[in-house]
């Protein structure tokens, strides 16, 4: 009986591990730039701010405490970008994420997917996929234009406070558009 229980626990741990690591392979992909920030980093960041007298700092502390992981992958390689797009599609099929909004800005497509949280303004997971960036904006790193951005944020995230996160951590500005739907 104990063995069965142990096996069950192990199996669920393995499957949990898998579900979190769909995009992890890109961490080691040669033509991908990656940034992975763990929960402990966010709780440290929240503690750096000793005095919080402005709204942005307060918002940042709140949101930093609630994030469990942030991953950003960017690539200029067309093949890798296509593989990323496929992975996003497959991930969306296997997970309970729903499309929050999408829009095209000239040639670029920005899509937001969320896993709903405890209320309208909170999400458990936020996935942003930007493809074809290079065509509408001259963003470049070391002379190369960024083609594709995949951003994944997990935790108990208050969408209203996401602006503070973008400003304090220099995240892609596209992320801010997640709030446009609510404002309109």
């Amino acid at each position: 009986m104990k063995k069965i229980l142990l096996t069950a626990v192990l199996l669920s741990a393995v499957s949990l591990g898998f579900s979190q690591s769909v995009f992890d392979k890109y961490e080691n992909e040669k033509s991908v730039s990656a940034m992975v920030i763990n929960k402990s980093m966010f709780s440290l960041l929240a503690k750096f701010e000793v005095v919080a007298d402005d709204k942005e700092t307060k918002d940042f502390i709140d949101i930093a405490k609630s994030i469990t992981s942030l991953k950003v992958f960017t690539t200029t390689d067309k093949e890798v970008a296509a593989a990323m797009g496929n992975d996003v599609t497959n991930y969306l099929k296997s997970s309970k994420l729903s499309e929050l909004m999408r829009f095209s800005d000239q040639e670029a497509q920005i899509k937001f997917y969320v896993l709903e949280g405890r209320d309208d303004s909170h999400v458990k997971e936020l996935l942003m996929f930007v493809s074809g960036v290079s065509k509408f904006e001259d963003i470049d790193i070391n002379g190369k234009t960024i083609e594709t951005v995949l951003l994944s944020l997990s935790g108990d995230i208050d969408l209203n406070k996401i602006n503070a996160l973008i400003t304090k951590m220099n995240l892609p500005q596209e992320l801010n558009k997640v709030n446009q739907k609510q404002k309109i």
Binding site: E27, V32, S33, A34, M35, V36, I37, N38, S40, M41, L44, I141, N142
Partner: peptide
């Protein structure tokens, strides 16, 4: 405890 990982081109690192 790993805080973060970064990778850009051939460079990579962790804290």
């Amino acid at each position: 405890t790993e805080l973060m990982k970064l990778k850009a081109e051939a460079y990579q690192g962790s804290v």
